[in-house]
Design a protein around this nucleic acid. Sequence first.
DNA 1: CACGTGACTAAGA
DNA 2: GTCTTAGCCACGT
Length: 109
Amino acid sequence: MTSETLGFFEKVYEVAKQIPYGRVTSYGAIAKYLGAARSARIVGYAMNNSHTKEVPAHRVVNRKGLLTGKHHFEGTNLMQQLLESEGIEVIENQIQNFETLFWDPSKEL
DNA sequence: CACGTGACTAAGA
DNA sequence: GTCTTAGCCACGT
């Protein structure tokens, strides 16, 4: 792929799009897969523009399985609703059974 | 070119 | 166990 012409953001989007249905991952996991484990913040930063792409940003949460970015979605509970519609149990902005639903691109991809 | 920003993470108190 | 601090780095201005 012409990934070298793509910025870091584009790479993040490519990975995020590959997140399986009903699964979730963390910013750090994506960053690690991209070879920039210390750029977890940049991944989150990229998701800030994810609204311009067809990226399932609701499947990307922080390392604790907390929906830290829900405020960036429309409304107040859209992110949680999207996750629940995929069979993911979310309580108080926190994903239940996070370890089980966790999808590590470095291992699965 | 330099500064500020942030949807993170790990470590310390 | 919860809160605070510091390090981190790509991107926009």
